[in-house]
Design a protein around this nucleic acid. Structure first.
Lengths: 218, 218
DNA sequence: AGGGATCTTCAGGCTGGCTTTAGGTGGGTC
DNA sequence: GACCCACCTAAAGCCAGCCTGAAGATCCCT
């Protein structure tokens, strides 16, 4: 107990020196509560905690949908314990005694990888484009689009509120070598209106005669 | 050298049994090339590699903006080496000799946390994938899958809601050296539908013509 | 060595997206 | 008001891409 608190203080001091802000909980329940109430970059967790052990706390958090990176500290060093920690949802573990250098390095690795990249989706009013899924929705309604339709709409949405010329659309949605009838753009505009405007009684896809088309911004 | 190759084979065999598709490179340059050309769930890297050591390979990849999780295998056990591995951009390390159980568990943890937050078992609506058991269930019904079927479904499930291209599926579920008919993907998609959709009157595995396949998220 | 499961190849049939066509609509200009 | 030109859109043909059953190849277990 004394030991654990000294260790906690040590870690806290060291991490603070590295620029982390640190909260310390001295038992499992408190830890769980703090973790659910706050958002942390990373959680460092001792397996042997009063009132709720590390494994339990870990899986509780995961069940609750909390995917904050967790570093588990364990006194035992049987390999199956390590595996158990990981399978309980920890992201990494460290067996005591461990070196401070290693702890910091591992925490840095955890934090760095913690949160990042989110699929980009484009919104224009209540119209949402999902490039990863090649589909779109207006409000709550899913709209099925063919790849070509999506490409055209995407080109328009990326410049929502601006006029996009027919040749720009051709350049962006069609193969570079395409040299067919430019009328094809009109055909696709027509199809898009039938899908994203007409059923909703809207008119967001506007023709600008002699210049191109504009997707009305919010 | 002989040793390394035997180890590589061992790991490859074991991982294949876990449903991973495995490519092996026997020197650093090859490894770098393969890593940049393909997309992997995880990279396992020996520190002592001919033609380019593990540290160098690791930082090269990171400089190039490749953040694939990397597991570093090291023969030394000085703690600063471990820290060095981590600071060079590795996500985890393991000192030889290590146990197979630990390697697998750590790899699972790495892969799990590789992209976004990801539970050990992947759920897509009422479809649950159990990577450890190579099986899945829809609602209360257990569904038997072959390793290949599982690999394909796994690749789709990890990106549920997104379109996964046929070549991505090939790259993830088949070996690097596979260069057969891409039609094989269609064959497996067909088999998967027969197992996870048709019996349940669903249609969650969607073809996006000219783009790939999408497993509908919840 | 035999048998079964799994993986892969192959080929025929079909679907549905892409493109073209052609007739219609409406705004702008003289 | 007449004309022209840009644009709209329904319809239809074509063809790449996809589906799927079946047969051959391979691997693995007994």
């Amino acid at each position: 107990m004394e030991d654990e608190e000294r260790l906690a203080d040590l870690i806290k001091g060291g991490l603070a020196g590295e620029g982390f802000a640190v909260d310390v909980a001295h038992d499992g329940r408190d830890g769980l509560w703090m973790a659910t109430e706050n958002t942390y970059d990373v959680i460092v967790l001792d397996v042997m905690l009063p009132r709720m052990n590390g494994y339990a706390l870990c899986s509780r958090l995961r069940e609750a949908g909390d995917w904050t990176p967790i570093m588990m500290l364990t006194a035992k060093d049987g390999i199956y314990d390590e595996a158990e920690a990981l399978d309980n949802g920890a992201d990494d573990y460290l067996s005591k005694p461990f070196s401070y250098v290693v702890l910091l390095a591992r925490l840095r690795a955890l934090v760095r990888r913690g949160g990042r990249e989110r699929p980009v989706s484009i919104s224009v009013g209540d119209l949402v484009l999902d490039p990863a899924g090649l589909r779109c929705r207006r409000g709550e309604t899913d709209i099925a689009l063919t790849p070509k339709e999506f490409a055209v709409l995407h080109a328009l949405a990326r410049r929502a509120g601006e006029v996009v010329s027919k040749s720009d659309l051709l350049a962006q949605a069609w193969d570079f070598s395409y040299d067919g009838d430019p009328n094809i753009v009109e055909v696709y505009i027509s199809a898009l209106r039938r899908k994203i405007d007409v059923p909703f009684g809207r008119a967001t896809l506007v023709t600008v005669r002699g210049a191109g088309y504009r997707l009305e911004a919010a």
